[in-house]
Write a protein that binds this DNA or RNA. Structure first.
Lengths: 298, 298
DNA sequence: ACTACTTATACGAAATACGTATTAAAGCCC
DNA sequence: GGGCTTTAATACGTATTTCGTATAAGTAGT
């Protein structure tokens, strides 16, 4: 089988129409060049160059092969360039997930836009998933990175998940506008200790569930859970309907639902982290590049 | 720069997902396979395969490169196949010319058709040329092969022209229907020794011109030339107009011009050869194959 | 006819690839 | 859990390939 070297040699000779000049351009001596061309012709079973001791010209098959050789070399160079991009995380694909609550975070669209400008060749595949679903998908290899609301100290189920915190967001209390405390600006959670709460199931959003329990525990009460909703915006509907109060990230304020008021919480632990979850052993350049871009300040 | 071998090795490992099995399929031992893959990864600057001492898997860049490598190998194989065709004269291009008189030969279309069925990948470029024009074009490299009416003994101008005779055709005498001898079936040229003749200029069709002179000389007369025509069918128009008689190949009988009658010539030298002209030093497989097909009996 | 130039051949040296032997590490089996 | 098997990586000597120097052979121009 012929060789990339032989192709390069042949193209050079075909361009120069001289073995001597081609050898100079290739920084080799003339005899090995003759040998390689002979070997190539031998291998193909066709005479590519007509040499009559004085000048060199392309045979008809040689013209055909020159075209082919150039195409092959170009394709190889293209593949090399693609790999150079892949090595630095500028090409490839990235399967990205996010929880519903993240879609209300104002920074998400602009961060994704920034990344796209940075690495436009990366094929982004977005999907919406619950936090626990993301962890499972990461570990099974169906997902590369996910936006979650979790803490590095207790990452959901598995220990093979890496979390990079990219934002710390206050929690707010969502309550019906006809609630006695609705006129207030801020509140301590203990002031609504006797009220009912609506939450997401712990299996789907453990962190927010546990955070409510934790703040309540510090205030020496155990929250009464009356209703559940699968999605976080479903909670707000339940709040508007007067089914209870809800603890949600501050970015949910952007959801202007009739009958819902948001109060700042004074409790020091009333915050939530926005983090990027990925497999701890995933060294993919695309992922590393993505994490870099997302965690860098500007 | 990486190598075709390394690409083949990589593709095999990627297919088997095992260095050991891949090495067996490639009929080499496992260590050099590991070395070549390492060298390839080193060259590209990317880890293509993830090996964790128990199983091998493709990295994301590896998946991209597998696709690229397959494309490159396919392209190389394609080029090799094209050259195999070119070597046996089944692909390439062939610039072919013919004189006007040849277009009336009944065998020409069917021979070209046969060749096209035989080597459909060859790009045929046809053009009409005078015999001498063909010789000049052959020598200057503008033409590959031409249909001419000439004799191997005196091929026009140059000695670097090869002639392959493919047909020997009788000459006939074209004369006006109102001519006294028009009722005859055959004739000796000496019977019209005193008549005027119309011919093509000697610079354009030397053979036919010289042949007339030769037959006349054997009959001890020198033909009187009254008119000239550039093309052979132009001669027939002149004959119909009563401007003189003409000597033409028998295949011109297919031209049923009003006022023209064709008589068989009894003279033993009244024949003409149809031949293929090509450069004697042209070893192009396409040409050789064409000459073979044209000169073979069937 | 001689010189200058170009490609092909001969042969020894350097670089490269391969194979055998061995190591290291991980999963499997008892 | 310890030994066994399997798998990829490393070490090193050998074989192959490729390269360079020297030389030959042939052509065009002076």
């Amino acid at each position: 089988m012929f060789d990339f070297r032989q192709l390069r040699y042949f193209v050079t000779v075909a361009e120069e129409l001289s073995f001597t000049r081609a050898a100079q351009r290739l920084y080799i001596s003339q005899p090995p060049l003759s040998q390689q061309i002979q070997s190539l012709e031998n291998d193909l079973g066709v005479r590519l160059l007509e040499r009559n001791k004085r000048n060199v010209s392309l045979t008809e098959p040689g013209k055909l092969f020159l075209d082919q050789a150039r195409q092959i070399l170009d394709k190889a160079e293209e593949a090399r360039a693609l790999m150079a991009d892949a090595a630095t995380g500028f090409s490839g694909k990235l399967r990205l997930a996010y929880t519903v609550s993240v879609t209300f975070h104002p920074a998400l669209p602009q961060m994704l836009l920034r990344y796209r400008r940075f690495a436009p060749q990366v094929n982004l595949m977005l999907s919406e998933m619950y936090t626990e679903q993301q962890y499972a998908a990461l570990l099974s290899g169906d997902l590369d990175v996910g936006f979650v609301r979790d803490e590095p100290e207790h990452p959901g189920t598995a220990r093979n998940i890496r979390l990079d915190v990219i934002d710390r967001e206050p929690l707010v209390l969502a309550l019906p506008t006809n609630h006695p405390l609705a006129a207030r600006e801020s509140i301590w959670l203990r002031e609504v200790a006797m009220e009912a709460f609506v939450v997401q199931p712990r299996e789907l959003a453990a962190t927010l569930y546990d955070r409510l329990a934790q703040i309540a525990a510090k205030a020496n009460f155990h929250p009464l859970i009356r209703q559940h909703a699968q999605q976080i915006n479903g909670l707000l509907v339940l709040v508007a309907a007067g089914m209870g109060l809800a603890l949600v990230p501050a970015s949910m304020r952007s959801v202007n639902l009739n009958g819902v008021k948001y109060l700042r919480l004074e409790d020091p632990d009333a915050y939530m982290l926005l983090a990027l979850a990925s497999r701890a052993d995933d060294t993919s350049p695309v992922l590393q590049r993505f994490l870099n871009v997302m965690t860098e300040p500007e």
